[in-house]
């Protein structure tokens, strides 16, 4: 049984189709990235999974249960929306104590102290949340979401509105939590760098459909043709190197950038032949590395295709 299962999910609002036959699964303990442009239907999917909206068609399950009708199953799930779910007029500790009461957390005082220390807010425990910065609120929101040790936690744009330092802090926190608490993380984001760093699996949603669903490693290595970056010892050899490479039948394309050649290969096993051809032309090579495409490139390609109606 998967932690999250979505099968043939569709949903429309006011005659406009937001989700069309969406299917994917998330395994236990995975950090799953759900990517898509604004308005793609990411938050709608999360809301349907959490039982806040009904599916138009299809079926969703979290931990094998329907959260819309199952209070006990909801106790095993955590969620962080954009607003953090915190009351500004209450202190950090009181906010956590409230949710501890709702979720029936055992020994709440100890758990609250542990989490406040983890998110580095122990010294602000009695301060009203309204006095906190956006980053501090987000950290407290994450602590609130995992307060009851959920098996699955849904994080909806956890880094939005944060400065780069705070984004990194949130990213590190998510990674630490997934390791320490062994929870499944469902990360809804369009911070592609963040997703590439922390997620094991991703799904790209665009135009209401899933355009790609695979591990990050598979997506970034298997998409498109293999590519190799060759760093030249002498940048002055660039023109000659381009000419040499351009004559090779197994090279599909070559771009030069400073002292480096970016070659796209027609044959994945042709890297040694490429190196031999350059050495044979008396071109000194400093470094050769297989280059993979970034998640951002793959994302933009899928979203671009969806927007182009492909």
């Amino acid at each position: 049984m998967s932690a999250v299962e979505v099968r043939g999910l569709s949903r429309s609002f006011d005659g406009r189709e937001i989700l069309r036959d969406v299917s994917f699964t998330v395994g236990h303990g995975e950090v799953f990235g759900y990517l898509g442009p604004n308005g793609a239907g990411k938050t709608t999917t999360i809301r349907i999974l959490l039982g806040l909206l009904a599916p138009g068609a299809g079926e969703v399950r979290v931990l094998g249960r329907d959260l819309a009708s199952d209070d006990d199953a909801r106790a095993r799930v955590g969620v962080l929306f954009d607003n953090n779910g915190l009351a500004d007029r209450m202190s950090a500790a009181d906010n956590l104590a409230y949710y501890a009461g709702l979720y029936g957390v055992e020994d709440p005082a100890e758990r609250i102290d542990e989490l406040l220390a983890l998110v580095d807010l122990a010294d602000r425990r009695d301060d009203p949340v309204g006095t906190f910065s956006t980053g501090m609120k987000r950290k407290l929101g994450i602590a609130r979401a995992i307060l009851h040790r959920p098996e699955v936690v849904f994080l909806d744009e956890p880094s939005s509105g944060l400065d780069p330092g705070a984004q990194r802090m949130v990213r590190d926190l998510i990674l630490e939590l997934s390791r320490r608490e062994e929870m499944t993380v469902f990360l809804n984001s369009h911070h592609l760098d963040e997703v590439q760093r922390i997620c094991s699996t991703v799904a790209i949603l665009a135009g209401g459909r899933i355009r790609a669903f695979d591990t990050v490693a598979n997506l970034t290595s298997a998409s498109g043709r293999p590519a190799v970056t060759v760093s030249l010892a002498d940048p002055g050899d660039r023109a000659r190197a381009c000419e040499t490479v351009g004559r090779l039948p197994f090279v599909a394309g070559c771009d030069a950038d400073g002292g480096a050649l970016h070659c796209t290969l027609a044959d994945p096993g042709a890297t040694p032949d490429l190196v031999a051809a350059l050495v044979g032309a008396n071109i000194r090579i400093e470094e050769v590395r297989r280059s993979s495409r970034s998640l951002e490139e793959i994302y933009l390609e899928h979203v671009g295709r969806a927007e182009g109606g492909a």
Binding site: L50, D71, N83, L102
Partner: peptide, 14 residues
């Protein structure tokens, strides 16, 4: 208005 009701609706409370 604050949207925090959405988080409460996810709690194990009817």
């Amino acid at each position: 208005r604050d949207g925090t009701i959405e988080t409460l609706l996810c709690a194990p409370v009817s």
